[in-house]
């Protein structure tokens, strides 16, 4: 069942262009120059209930604008948009009752109050029966491991702790859809890992549809079986996450160490030499050359070999720059022919 349907949706903003300096500021009082910025262009998207969808793209790609349109915060300039059968920008309470959104800067927590106080407020706002409220609260308190944090002022908590509580508040009323706009931003590795685990569990156990935007590819790779790549307001890719990275991850890093000194250079000569010493070589090789390189290095009797995926930032950059469904599809077709 399709829970989100986006058809040819565009969002055009009009923004004021000001010339530099005091003269520009004064001139702006009388005559203003505006430019149109297409934050989202002819976007088409369908999301089924229970999916965990990742939205990736560089800054200014249109991810947050899309989320805002799906939650009704802003209206599209054109196109058709339906979420759970509602037009989001009508902002009907019956619609808002069924989703939750967690956006970094827009905290629902009261900083002066405790998490328990905020949860009680949201119980009333969402009309959650007391039994269900207690069950959900107990479930999420245990899942997030935040029992000791429930009775302290939110302002005394760390960013990671606050994010867990934000998620708890968002999930308290069992929303059908959860929109997450960069939930792991600013969190350390441990907190990020915990959040990812929680989200996976919520999606699996409760069937909550989750739309996640993130700059951290680790989030997308770990959580989202399907991802959508957006850039300059347009959708560049919509499909399997593993296939996307498979398509764009062109190199692997090979680290070979020896107990005896070896001659400079490396057998085969392909790829890029990142580091070299008499006892160690680090190479960046095309994926298809790894096998050949390994065979060649084995003859030198290495003490250790490590093969790593290419640095994810480089992969992401390639996705944004080259990204196109056609490219990935064409690459797959070529591989099938071989």
């Amino acid at each position: 069942m399709k829970i989100i349907e986006v058809e040819n949706v565009s969002k055009i903003y009009r923004r004021y262009k000001k010339k530099e300096g005091i003269r520009g500021s004064i001139a702006g009082l009388v005559k203003r120059e505006y430019e149109e910025k297409a934050a989202v262009r002819n976007m088409n998207l369908e999301v089924s209930e229970g999916e965990f969808l990742g939205l990736i793209g560089p800054n200014g790609a249109g991810k947050t604008t899309l989320i805002k349109m799906l939650t009704g915060i802003i209206a599209p300039t054109s196109g058709r948009l339906e979420v759970m059968g509602y037009y989001p920008n009508d902002l009907k309470n019956a619609f808002k009752q069924q989703y939750a959104v967690v956006m970094g800067q827009k905290s629902q927590l009261f900083f002066e109050l405790t998490a328990n106080d905020t949860l009680r407020l949201f119980q009333k706002i969402y009309d959650i029966p007391e039994k269900e409220y207690q069950e959900n609260k107990a479930y999420f308190t245990e899942l997030f491991g935040v029992k000791e944090l429930m009775d302290v002022q939110v302002r005394t908590l760390s960013l990671g702790e606050r994010m867990k509580l934000e998620l708890m508040v968002a999930l308290l009323h069992n929303p059908r859809i959860l929109f997450l706009d960069e939930p792991t931003i600013g969190l350390d590795a441990i907190a990020s890992r915990q959040i990812r685990r929680f989200l996976k569990e919520v999606n699996t156990d409760r069937g909550t549809t989750i739309l996640l935007t993130s700059h951290y590819m680790e989030d997308i790779k770990t959580l989202c079986s399907r991802c959508v790549v957006v850039n300059h307001g347009s959708k560049l890719y919509d499909g399997d996450t593993a296939e996307l990275f498979d398509c764009y991850q062109k190199s692997k890093k090979l680290t070979v160490t020896f107990t005896h000194p070896v001659a400079p250079g490396w057998p085969g000569g392909q790829g890029v030499l990142l580091e070299e010493s008499p006892f160690k070589k680090v190479l960046l090789l095309p994926r298809e050359e790894i096998g050949k390189a390994l065979t060649a290095f084995m003859q030198l009797e290495p003490s250790d070999i490590i093969i790593e995926e290419e640095e994810i930032g480089a992969v992401v950059e390639r996705v944004y720059q080259e990204g196109s469904e056609d490219i990935c599809r064409n690459t797959q077709k070529s591989q099938e022919r071989i």
């Binding site: 805002k68 939650t71 009704g72 915060i73 902002l91 309470n93 019956a94 808002k96 009752q97 989703y99 939750a100 959104v101 956006m103 800067q105 827009k106 905290s107 629902q108 949201f122 706002i125 969402y126």
Partner: peptide, 13 residues
């Protein structure tokens, strides 16, 4: 002004 008004728009009140 600081872009956080939408927190009131997304709750059913």
């Amino acid at each position: 002004r600081n872009g956080t008004f939408s927190k009131y728009m997304v709750i059913p009140v």
